[in-house]
Design a binder for these strands. Sequence first.
DNA 1: GATTAGACATCAATAGATTTAATGGCTCGA
DNA 2: TCGAGCCATTAAATCTATTGATGTCTAATC
Lengths: 295, 295
Amino acid sequence: MTSLPLGSIRVFDSVARLQNFTKAADELNMTQSAVSYQIKLLEDFAGTPLFQRRARGVTLTPKGEVIAPVIRRALADMGETFRAIREEQNSVLVISVIHTFASNWLTPRITDFQNLHPEVSVRFDISSRLVDFSSEGIDCGIRLGRGNWPGLTSHRLLSGGFTPLASPAYLERYGRPQTPADLLQCHLITPDDNWWPVWFRQAGVEGPLTMTKPGVTIDTQQIIGGLALSGGGVGLVSSAFFQNEIESGTLVKLFDIEASTGTNYYLVYPETGQLPAKVKFFRDWIIDCSCNTKF
Amino acid sequence: MTSLPLGSIRVFDSVARLQNFTKAADELNMTQSAVSYQIKLLEDFAGTPLFQRRARGVTLTPKGEVIAPVIRRALADMGETFRAIREEQNSVLVISVIHTFASNWLTPRITDFQNLHPEVSVRFDISSRLVDFSSEGIDCGIRLGRGNWPGLTSHRLLSGGFTPLASPAYLERYGRPQTPADLLQCHLITPDDNWWPVWFRQAGVEGPLTMTKPGVTIDTQQIIGGLALSGGGVGLVSSAFFQNEIESGTLVKLFDIEASTGTNYYLVYPETGQLPAKVKFFRDWIIDCSCNTKF
DNA sequence: GATTAGACATCAATAGATTTAATGGCTCGA
DNA sequence: TCGAGCCATTAAATCTATTGATGTCTAATC
């Protein structure tokens, strides 16, 4: 059994609406003869005439009358669904972004982008895993790395350098360390973080790194920063994310020493043939914006 | 803007169900490569991937997930509608039949046909106009004529001969006419019917046909017959339709003279290439059946 | 009743879209 | 590391859908 000739159904719908092969042909940009062929195909499939041929056009037969609304609805549903998807495709920008970056850097600045491009709405996909762009409907992302992801275009945004910060209240209570090595005596937040040894070495501290005070271990910079702010100890975080706090004095940068593992924050997006306008807009804006952030 | 590639949607549906291009190709009797092509077409139309390619098949992307149920439903709705129509096409026999024939001849006999072919259900389309078979979904009809309709196959069923009938009660009250000419003195039902002059002439009555008694004018044999039965006068009707009444004596055939305009009752159906089985069944049955009716 | 305009059917030729077959690359699991 | 399973790609083959020309039919008009 041959299956429903799908190509015919659009023709059928048009003819059913216009009650006229010639006009339908016109609407569909084909010839009257092609319409006739398609309708015949469908009638053969149905096993019965669907239109009654009249002198000034055609009218639906009772069976055609039954089919017409079903087809119209099916086409409308599918068309509408695809339209919505394409609409979203153009107007919603989905950015995969790590939590810290979103809350400490991007969120405060994103309204500026929205003012610049009000037709684009922005959605953050906040997760720490490395998402697969094409398959999850994600347009671009912010990643920490070396800018050499295969298949992705990347633009360096911010330094991945990190430095110890503490609140004035903490320093007042426990005293401000004078040398990097003094920090070993402080309450380090997340003392077993891999970044601490890196920072100590790059700050010139040699010998065994024995931390003497107990520290809280937590795992996102966001919270590390928050804990430092509330006087819970010394946190080692990307300084770029705490510009505001440093400038306003609510967090103190203990030494002018930025350590780095060589990784930085990048904007990345797939190397596709045609970059969507919304991604272009975002790229241009965020690059410009990141230039106004130190580091 | 190019329009929804309808050919792709069946492929999409299959792939969405099976989560596998190769299996879908198998189901659709095409190659994996053709499936790949069709899906790409649809993805180009959507402007976004609809499937996420994985090592052991594919999975729907979020957008594909949105489209899949819509397409499945659209296909199911259309498929079901066509299926129902074809089903009806094979199992419902629509007969266009004039009122008198239906009620006086066909209806009493049709149960026999239904017993013979229980899988076919019969629908009468009762109307006096000559319907257009192909366009109104009518399979066959009973017509009064000469059996020479162009484009239609016809089988003679019953004589179109007519003869005057009256009820015993009427005859008792007004006396039974002894000669055809006597009838001019009776209450003729529908005296201006064209059939009356035909009958009188064929019965050998010459000269002016002056009817002396007022008569009721009505227009269907069904009612003429009914009126005659109830003693309202003498009705001129197709005798074939009143066999039962004549045999049981509730109507009396006044003379053994059947007049005819040369027309008879025929079974007709379109000269199509392939006659549906249900029509074949009906034809064979009704021809056989009509042989058991006088005239 | 002849004529005309409008509309669908049909046919052969053709363009073009689909499908195929073959091949290559990718991922996962053994 | 290898093999199995699966999708993408390509060029060629196929076949469907479309075209353009022509024929037929119907209703309306004169």
